[in-house]
Design a binder for these strands. Structure first.
Lengths: 154, 154
DNA sequence: CTCCTTTGATTGACACGTCAATCATCCGCC
DNA sequence: GGCGGATGATTGACGTGTCAATCAAAGGAG
């Protein structure tokens, strides 16, 4: 009775084992991917996300808040990160003509070059560490698991 | 020809979509779990890991480097974290008798209480956000996917 | 016993993330 | 026109993570 009652609330030891392995492994994969990007291209995952969004934008420029939406970041996080990227010359900030409060983030030549140099290595690493590590069925299952977890998160 | 050649190296658009969803979702689950732990118990995931290891240790105390091994952290990371935890009274550092270089990390009464208060809410959240979000088959598949990814990481 | 390397742990500098506060501009409304 | 609340963005404080440098004690080789 105690056992069945507890099972409604707490995971079993086996479920917990799987959970730990799952969450630690996905974290390790993310870390490895980030480390390779950093080592091979000198970019952090955050840099990559920003550069990707800017590369795909009209005129390689975006309003700061639009950029934050595109990559799903809080504005203050983006602001801090842009400060660091600007120091390194990857992006530039310009005043917005149509809204004096606004800022436009512009991809610099350097930033565009850095992104171009990073994309193939990065996608190759994704293929190696994720796609090639799994069977096609497992890749599909991973997609469904993610969808189910997302649904629960709401 | 170009297409088939590229496919050996780069993920397809569909694979990339699944990858992004997968990695972003696991990150979101981790974040949600951490946020709940923080909100309900005032502990970060790092605090929880440290307190768990100390709780399970003989005499609720561990050598610093042993603790780092147990939870898989670098020593400098642990040292910084212990400094913050010590300020909050969750742990205490004592000199080691058998090795004058060494430090022993001791669980305080407060730390033990905080951990006791956190474990059920935390495990409940794991059950809700992971175990209950998935079918039993998906839980098993998650375990296999994690194992396959781990194998590729080496 | 005295070097000299290894080991245990801490520190400082910096990148990254969140939260709350700030500040200027914009815009609806009177 | 001007007031007052929304909006765009930045800032500061602090927790967290990595890397390289530091430093004392331990321990083996001569």
């Amino acid at each position: 009775m105690t056992r069945t009652t507890r099972r409604r609330v707490l995971p079993t030891a086996e479920e917990l084992r799987i959970w730990r392995g799952f969450i630690e492994t996905t974290e390790a994969v993310r870390a490895e991917l980030g480390a390779r990007l950093q080592a091979e291209c000198g970019l952090s995952p955050g840099d990559y996300a920003v550069l990707l969004a800017l590369s795909e934008a009209e005129g390689q420029r975006l309003r700061s808040s639009q950029l934050a939406d595109d990559i799903g970041w809080e504005r203050s996080r983006l602001s801090h990160h842009l400060g660091r990227m600007e120091k390194r010359g990857l992006i530039r900030r310009e005043e917005c003509r149509t809204d004096n409060r606004g800022a436009e983030v512009v991809l610099t030549t350097e930033g565009a070059a850095a992104f171009r140099g990073a994309t193939v290595p990065h996608l190759t690493a994704v293929r190696e560490l994720f796609v090639d590590a799994l069977t096609p069925e497992q890749v599909a299952a991973a997609g469904e698991i993610a969808a189910a977890l997302r649904a629960k998160l709401g």
